[in-house]
Amino acid sequence: MPLPITEPRPRVGDTEKMTINMGVVDLGQIDLLVQEGFYSNRSDLIRTAVRNLLAVHSDTLRQTVARRTLTLGLQQLGRAELERAVAAGERLKIQVVGLARIDDDVTPELARAAIESVTVLGAFQASPAVRKALSDRMT
């Protein structure tokens, strides 16, 4: 009897795909560095370059996050937290640099009642119904 096939569970929030266009000379130089063993592949070089550039600007990033009162990293919102906000008469302003995630147990009605606005620099994960309910509040 064959074993059932199970799909590996994706690790949500680990990475997001990004597409860039590069000149052929730059691409060739990247390939040369990969061939010479400096990097394992193109993506490795690009990730390293981006991390190094972000490190150069780390003070500016830190100051901007503080000034704009942004959440850096992951902000996860569940039904209980949103229900508490509604009960307290509060409306949440979600402002995230990284990943904002709304749990699957949150209804579109609860999301609209509890969330005033959503600003995400990075990735936003929510059910299609919640995303649609908040579409006019996303910037």
Rank of each mutant, 00 (worst) to 15 (best):
M22S: 06
M22G: 04
M22R: 04
M22E: 02
G23H: 11
G23C: 07
G23T: 13
G23F: 08
V24N: 11
V24M: 10
V25L: 12
V25F: 08
V25P: 04
V25D: 11
V25N: 13
V25S: 13
D26R: 03
D26W: 00
D26C: 02
L27F: 10
G28M: 05
G28W: 05
G28I: 03
G28T: 08
Q29C: 09
Q29S: 14
Q29A: 12
Q29P: 06
I30G: 05
I30K: 06
I30Q: 05
D31S: 04
D31Y: 01
D31N: 09
D31F: 01
D31I: 00
L32G: 13
L32D: 14
L32T: 08
L32W: 07
L33E: 07
L33A: 12
L33R: 09
V34G: 01
V34F: 01
V34Y: 01
V34Q: 00
V34H: 00
V34W: 00
V34P: 00
Q35S: 14
Q35E: 10
Q35H: 09
E36S: 12
E36A: 14
E36H: 15
G37K: 12
G37T: 11
G37Q: 10
G37I: 06
F38R: 15
F38S: 11
F38H: 15
Y39L: 07
Y39D: 03
Y39K: 03
S40Q: 06
S40N: 03
S40W: 00
S40V: 05
N41M: 10
N41Y: 10
R42I: 02
R42M: 01
R42S: 00
S43G: 15
D44H: 11
D44N: 09
D44S: 06
D44C: 02
L45Q: 07
L45S: 05
L45D: 02
L45K: 05
L45G: 04
I46V: 15
I46K: 03
I46R: 02
I46N: 02
R47V: 11
R47P: 02
T48G: 04
A49P: 05
V50Y: 02
R51P: 01
R51Q: 11
N52K: 11
N52G: 14
L53T: 10
L53M: 10
L53W: 07
L54I: 11
L54T: 12
A55V: 08
V56L: 14
H57V: 07
H57G: 08
H57A: 11
H57M: 10
S58C: 07
D59R: 06
D59P: 02
D59L: 06
T60D: 11
T60P: 01
T60W: 07
L61Y: 06
L61W: 07
L61V: 12
L61H: 09
Q63V: 06
Q63N: 15
Q63T: 08
T64E: 10
T64K: 13
V65Y: 02
V65G: 00
V65T: 04
V65I: 15
A66S: 09
A66P: 01
A66M: 06
